[in-house]
Design a protein around this nucleic acid. Structure first.
Lengths: 183, 183
DNA sequence: CAGCCCATGTAACGCGTTACATGATTAG
DNA sequence: CTAATCATGTAACGCGTTACATGGGCTG
């Protein structure tokens, strides 16, 4: 049930469905994803529930745009969600399921290949997130104390991604070494 | 599309739907979850697709039981899945979404409370996984070299869980410290 | 005999993805 | 003029959860 709350949270600063999608791809990807075909109907639903308000900002340049903004009722809903405490959702990690059943492949080389590929995939993700994090860090003189509240909490999620991916990347490297020893 | 492959992978050793559910709860929870209402129809579907075979092992004691086992066709399917390389599925982590929008709460104490609760939740998960891991480690004289292939790859997933949760737990502790400084 | 675990399933509903449909603007 | 990006939406389908329905066996 988090898409609803993410939309309400993000639309405290008004934007369109299309803008939100970009935010999902560029910023939220660390902890959530959604398609436009899921976003638009949700926006409609939340508007009907009076948690969002719309204004048509078409006309001037570009195609007509619907700009949404969270209402007081919507903000209350976000606060409820936060006060209820941390939501735990079951993790689904396909590549770990694959690792679990890796011995179904009979060739030692194929098992090793899988882990090498996995390691590269994780390395890329790590590099991507880490460079985003380092950039932020260097822009601030007195990081993280100098950040305002909003940027500070945004940043904690980025920091988590970096630390988690670092641990997973190191795990994948140790896996490769262990598998290599098992010839 | 992983439930299918997890069932096919796990049923290389024959068991019932109910047995599989226990495995999900006790072992796979680290990387996947599923309800019985999802498992039973999948087993039926995979049996129709000739990737599983059933035998009624009712009679003797307890209620009648259907025991499923992966066929050659099913094993080939698992191998295909593994050879295609690591599957990346988008992560959805509700509590990180909540962290991102934590500044929607105006009270500093409420923000801190959220992070303290989160830290406790993560600590519990970490302790649970880590004790499972330590037990395994101590049972083996020459860990992990002494493990057979199946146990070895099973174990890599456990190891990943431990390392990841350790990193996340440390992150949550550092978050508490940083938030405390921001009074 | 009450409550729990074993054991299998169906139904309703919501979440999420892929594909389809439409049309404007902008950059090469 | 063509391709990409901007912009909004619907339809079909599959995945996943919660609730419901049924019944046997075991333990206190």
């Amino acid at each position: 049930m988090s898409l609803k709350h993410i939309l309400l949270g993000e639309l405290q600063q008004p934007k369109s469905g299309y803008d939100i999608k970009k935010k999902f791809d560029q910023v939220f990807s660390n902890f959530w994803s959604a398609e436009l075909s899921q976003i638009y109907p949700q926006l409609k639903k939340l508007t009907e529930a009076k948690m969002l308000k719309v204004s048509d900002a078409g006309s001037s340049i570009g195609p007509s745009k619907k700009v949404y903004q969270t209402t007081e009722l919507g903000i209350t809903e976000v606060q409820k969600w936060l006060i209820e405490g941390p939501q735990q959702n079951p993790e689904k990690i396909s590549y770990l399921a694959q690792t679990y059943f890796l011995n179904t492949l009979h060739s030692h080389q194929q098992k090793l290949d899988f882990m090498i590929k996995l390691s590269k995939v994780i390395e890329e993700k790590y590099n991507f997130l880490n460079s985003a994090y380092q950039m932020r860090k260097q822009q601030e003189v007195n990081y993280p104390e100098s950040l305002d509240d909003e940027a500070f909490y945004n940043n904690l999620t980025l920091l988590m991604g970096v630390k988690k991916l670092k641990a997973i990347y190191e795990w994948s490297l140790s896996c490769i070494k262990m598998i290599e020893k098992r010839v």
